[in-house]
Amino acid sequence: MNDQNQSTSFFAAPVPDWVDPFDWTGLTPGAPTDGVNFLLTETQVLIEGDVVHFFVRSASKAASPAGVTRIAPVSITFDPLLEKIALHRVAVWRDGQMIDRTRIEDFDLLRREKGLERRVYDGRLTADMILPDVRPSDTVELCYSIIQRHPVVKGMIDLRPDLGWSVACGMTRYRLVCEQGRELTIIEYNKPPLPDVQEGEGRISRTWTTQDTAGSTFENYTPPGTSQVPSLHIADRKTWADIADLYRPGYETEQAIPADLLATLDAIKADSPADEASQVMNALRLVQRDVRYLAFSMGVGGLVPRQLEAIWSNRLGDCKDKSLLLTRCLQYLGIDAAPALVNSYLEQRVGALVPCAYAFDHCIVDVRLDGETYFLTRPCMSNRAPSAHLSL
């Protein structure tokens, strides 16, 4: 990445004034895990209009040479199209003295693309640094802010912090700051502590703190979405209709269909003018066969589809793109269809969640045919999909 882009998306800055200061240096380390004592995990969140500020701080102590290997690399991952990183401090603490290592130029910005083999590109960057001269009994402190502006979610709250871990931790601290009067739904799991609530200057602050927690032992084969540590789900008090309205502009289907695709759809209509089920199947096969799966999840692409012209001309798209294309094809054929957002992990259990912005991870097509509702869940399949996947 060039220096100009690096300076605008990843830069050094002091801790912002809204952050509640806290001296962690007196915390007692818990039992080490793989040579590391985890002293502090802290997140503070400020909702300010459509901008969300995340202040993040961690402190980990090397209890052995193996622990040095684990804590010497420090990294921060972010989406440069939606987020900026303000680096506040990287420090090594030794015998009560701080050795400041806060040097932006010592970081490398890497684009790792963990989903590359699955043809999923998210464009996220990792700012990575290997700290020099870290020794057993040293503590590494990392402190930074993420400034996020998402044009789709627009500052809507959907936060799911854990207050316990699989490892022992000296302190976990989570603070949320927003304007007074903002209506929130806060769901508690596994008896988290009560928050410390402070009000003033038009804002309300809630802080949850756990201290000297032992590592949790997780059970196997629990139902999807089950939390096994003290945790929270914090969301704006909305309805599912509100969430649908949030995403609807990105899925509007009045876009013009490319001319060469229109000719193919006219042929589908002519082949079976009175058989809408056959038209649905032929349109589905068309999208499966001619549009290869490739997910462009950079920036807003993780939540809304691209334009029809781009999807069809490139013959590439993810579940959102292919579902939107199929929906528009079916509507042109006179068939009642719409994109439908779903949660592929929770499935029907998604309804048990409070209405929230990040409830969905997949898109399918809802088709109404002869008074019945069908869900076409396979627009992303290739033309090698067995016929059972195509039956209504």
Rank of each mutant, 00 (worst) to 15 (best):
Q4S: 08
Q6A: 11
T8N: 03
F10A: 03
F11S: 00
F11A: 00
W24Q: 01
A31W: 00
L40T: 10
L46I: 09
G49F: 14
V51Q: 09
V52W: 02
V52K: 12
S58H: 10
S60Y: 11
R70V: 12
V74W: 06
F78C: 00
L87I: 07
R94I: 11
M98Q: 04
I104R: 15
L109D: 05
L109Y: 10
K114I: 10
P136E: 03
P136G: 01
I146D: 04
I157A: 05
L159E: 14
W165S: 11
M171W: 02
T172S: 14
R182F: 06
L184G: 02
E199Q: 15
R203G: 02
T210A: 02
S216V: 12
T226V: 00
A235P: 14
K238D: 09
L246C: 13
L265T: 05
M281F: 04
A283S: 15
V291S: 09
R315A: 14
G317N: 05
C329I: 04
G334P: 12
L341G: 05
L341M: 15
E347H: 13
G351V: 02
A352E: 15
P355V: 08
A357E: 07
A357D: 12
C363S: 08
I364A: 08
D366G: 01
D366K: 14
R368N: 13
D370G: 08
G371K: 05
F375S: 03
P379H: 05
P379N: 02
C380I: 15
A385P: 10
P386N: 10
